[in-house]
């Protein structure tokens, strides 16, 4: 190796304090005799002090909180997921389309974070185990029907809440409508509507009147979102905002949480038929 090249390597290591002790001693001695290395070392050190003043723009919290949702949306749009998932694992979705089901679960997990910021921790009873951890590979068949239905209902409600919060908190005078990403919200609404259809029926059969009403209320708003005309997005968003308010949606979601409705549903005895639960109300 020629001497210049060695000097260069050593300077690059020395300015970061990377030189091992033995090399450092040789290098220090060398600096005494070599103007070139000594000047390089001094100037590069002070250059690094300037580079330390560089400020890297810091994305805000909402960027990181929404990161997974944006990635998942893109992966769905690019059909990344469907190519990976085997037919076997799709069967576990109880007849639901592949995307909505896990997306609800993933979103429910992040919804807990996002919603927590807006409404405060006090509104939340703990989510049933499994909502945040249930994955594609895990079959749902061994889960007791009451727990399964409670999880799905809660996931549906949380997911809807997340979606509605995005719209309700949107300030047309301050924000660019583009950031709403309405096409995505509409697709999510359509997926949720599909789930609402199932839940309505199953909750009815399980005599879960209050939760059924909540699902129906949310369904009405989701239908509005799904049918929004994109050209008039701002007026449409206002319509949804009014609808959410007049139906007292968030209050009802809150009540379902604090009243332990999911817990009640969850505790339904698994060996009893779903229709024999009238005593719970």
């Amino acid at each position: 190796m020629n001497k210049n090249k060695r000097c260069q390597e050593w300077v690059a290591e020395a300015v970061y304090g990377d030189l091992p002790e033995d090399k450092k001693r040789i290098f220090d001695d060398h600096l005494q005799q070599c103007d070139l290395c000594s000047a390089a070392y001094t100037e590069m050190s002070s250059t690094l002090d300037i580079m330390d003043k560089r400020r890297r723009p810091e994305p805000d919290n909402s960027f990181w909180e929404g990161y997974w949702d944006r990635l998942a949306t893109r992966m769905e749009a690019e059909k990344v997921f469907t190519s990976q998932v085997s037919k076997e694992s799709r069967k576990t979705f109880l007849g639901l389309k592949f995307f909505p089901r896990w997306a609800f679960q993933a979103a429910a997990a992040s919804a807990l974070v996002v919603v927590g910021i807006f409404l405060g921790r006090v509104l939340f009873s703990p989510a049933p185990q499994g909502i945040q951890t249930a994955g594609i590979g895990e079959t749902q068949t061994q889960v007791a029907p009451g727990i399964e239905l409670a999880q799905r209902t809660q996931t549906y409600v949380q997911r809807s809440k997340l979606l509605l919060l995005g719209l309700v908190n949107f300030d047309a005078s301050e924000e660019d409508p583009y950031t709403l990403d309405l096409p995505y919200k509409q697709q999510a609404s359509r997926d949720l509507l599909q789930e609402a259809g199932w839940l309505k029926q199953e909750l009815g059969e399980a005599h879960q009147r209050r939760l059924q009403e909540l699902v129906v209320d949310l369904e009405a708003i989701l239908l509005q979102i799904a049918n929004l005309e994109l050209e008039e997005d701002l007026a449409a968003v206002e319509l949804v905002q009014t609808g959410v308010e007049s139906r007292g949606i968030f209050l009802k979601i809150h009540l379902a949480d604090v009243a332990g409705s999911y817990k009640t549903l969850e505790n339904t005895k698994p060996d009893k038929p779903a229709t024999d639960k009238s005593r719970q109300f």
């Binding site: 390597e9 070139l36 390089a40 250059t47 690094l48 300037i50 580079m51």
Partner: peptide, 30 residues
């Protein structure tokens, strides 16, 4: 890696010489 790092540092040094208020090192290894 060390060579690339040195080359990067050397270019940055030249680019930012006016900020260091010190341009006495005119010689180079090359």
């Amino acid at each position: 890696v060390k060579s690339l790092l040195f080359r990067a540092l050397n270019k940055l040094r030249k680019e930012l010489s006016s900020y260091r208020g010190n341009t006495r090192w005119e010689a180079s290894y090359e």
